[in-house]
Simulated scan of single mutants.
Amino acid sequence: MTGNQTAEGPKHKRDLTRRKVVVAGGAAVVAVGAGSALAMTASADETGSTTARPTSSSGSSGAEVCYRLTSETTEGPYYIDADKIRRDITEDKEGIPLTLDLKVVDSETCKPIADAAVDIWHCDALGIYSGYEDASTGGGGTPPTGAPTGAPTDTPSGTPTGEPPSGAPTGGTGGVHEEPTDDERYLRGTWRTDRQGRVTFRTIFPGWYRGRCVHIHTKVHVDGEWTDAGYEGGHSCHTGQFFFDEESVLASAEVEPYSTSTTERTTLTEDTIYDQSGAAGGLLKLKYNRKNIAKGVVGSLTMGVDPEATNTGGGT
Rank of each mutant, 00 (worst) to 15 (best):
58 S>F: 08
191 W>C: 07
241 Q>C: 01
41 T>F: 07
253 A>I: 05
111 K>A: 14
24 A>T: 13
71 S>G: 04
117 A>C: 04
282 G>H: 13
125 A>H: 13
156 P>M: 08
85 I>Q: 12
272 T>C: 03
191 W>M: 07
103 K>P: 02
155 T>Y: 05
269 T>Y: 12
289 N>M: 03
284 L>S: 15
50 T>A: 05
237 C>T: 15
115 D>I: 14
44 A>G: 08
182 D>P: 08
227 T>K: 03
146 G>Q: 12
99 T>S: 11
58 S>W: 12
290 R>H: 03
311 N>V: 13
175 G>I: 00
259 S>L: 04
201 F>I: 03
124 D>S: 08
111 K>H: 05
269 T>C: 02
293 I>N: 04
168 A>N: 02
4 N>F: 14
51 T>K: 14
214 V>R: 08
270 E>P: 02
91 E>H: 15
283 L>H: 00
303 M>S: 11
78 Y>F: 15
84 K>C: 10
132 Y>W: 12
104 V>C: 12
101 D>P: 01
6 T>S: 11
208 W>E: 15
103 K>S: 05
116 A>D: 05
265 R>A: 11
148 P>Q: 00
127 G>I: 09
17 T>E: 13
303 M>E: 00
233 G>A: 08
237 C>I: 09
300 S>V: 11
31 A>W: 06
167 G>M: 06
139 G>P: 10
285 K>N: 15
256 E>C: 09
249 V>A: 03
89 I>P: 04
158 G>H: 07
297 V>S: 02
